[in-house]
């Protein structure tokens, strides 16, 4: 089974709050000094799901990312985990893209890669949490889409996709090729192996520019943005400590429950 996985580089979600800073004027996140960006953890889980399918059915995994600095680090991370090929899409024309233009760029790249049975994306990127790219790629390529996939298998020539819901799961039979966004229920992604790191770090990663993709210039970059960011800010959270008294633990528990209900927490 040949799989394409779309991955994104984001600021490390584990950075301490004190290091997270915004430029309110330009409405951008200021990259934290000394803390390198990482592969979006949800995308890393999409790579993991692709590797499980490769372990079972064989095939080839190609990893795509858009990075205007032509940074290959997260593609190499996925290769070190076990993916076969990686491509970085880098062009000044891509700068300022939103989910729609990003999806257009990725859709064009997916078509250029060609033969594939499945496209996987993380359920959302852990920086902006929009969760749109996978769905728009499916729309662009007129492919069936299953969101929040926890597991994928192959039954009778079709994909059997287990989709996570709030109170359980759904099973879909999906013809190939298809697109799925991957839920975090997939679990912990494998670590890159020593042999994978050696191979990945010495691999030449192709860089594709806008001209390589047959992309529609009106659909990419800042000029194609369809949503307007009005304000970007860090919410101020106030902490208050209130001691709930009670003669007995049971009495204090009841009072605590009443207080929490009054506060709208439960």
């Amino acid at each position: 089974m040949d799989i394409i996985v779309c991955v994104k580089k984001i600021p490390d979600p584990e950075i301490p709050p004190a290091k997270f800073k915004l430029d309110m004027e330009s409405k951008r996140v200021i990259p934290p000094e000394g803390i390198p960006p990482v592969i979006n953890p949800y995308d890393e889980q999409a790579v993991e799901l692709a590797l499980r399918l490769k372990d079972k059915y064989g095939g080839k995994i190609t990893v795509l990312t858009i990075d205007n600095d032509a940074d290959t680090s997260i593609v190499k991370h996925a290769l070190a985990m076990g993916a076969d090929e990686g491509i970085v899409l880098a062009d000044k024309a891509f700068e300022g893209s939103d989910s729609f233009s990003t999806s257009h760029i990725l859709s064009q790249a997916i078509q250029k890669v060609g033969n594939f049975d499945l496209v996987l994306c993380g359920r959302q990127a852990a920086d902006w949490d929009e969760g749109l790219v996978g769905a728009i790629i499916a729309e662009n390529l007129s492919l069936p889409l299953v969101t929040l996939a926890e597991a994928v298998d192959v039954v009778d020539g079709k994909l059997k996709v287990k989709r996570v819901t709030l109170d359980g799961y759904q099973i879909f039979a999906v013809p190939t090729p298809a697109v799925a966004t991957v839920s975090n229920e997939v679990g912990q992604p494998r670590l890159p192996s020593g042999w994978g790191i050696i191979s990945a770090s010495r691999k030449q990663i192709p860089i594709w520019k806008a001209g390589d993709l047959d992309a529609d210039p009106s659909q990419i970059g800042a000029k194609a943005v369809r949503r307007r960011l009005v304000k970007l800010f860090i919410p101020v959270r106030e902490k208050k400590c209130e001691i709930i008294e009670g003669e007995t633990t049971a009495e204090a528990s009841v009072k605590l429950a009443e207080r929490l209900r009054k506060a709208g927490v439960i």
Partner: peptide, 8 residues
């Protein structure tokens, strides 16, 4: 390569 090994 060294950074990747360190992180892994």
């Amino acid at each position: 390569e060294q950074r990747m090994f360190r992180d892994m």
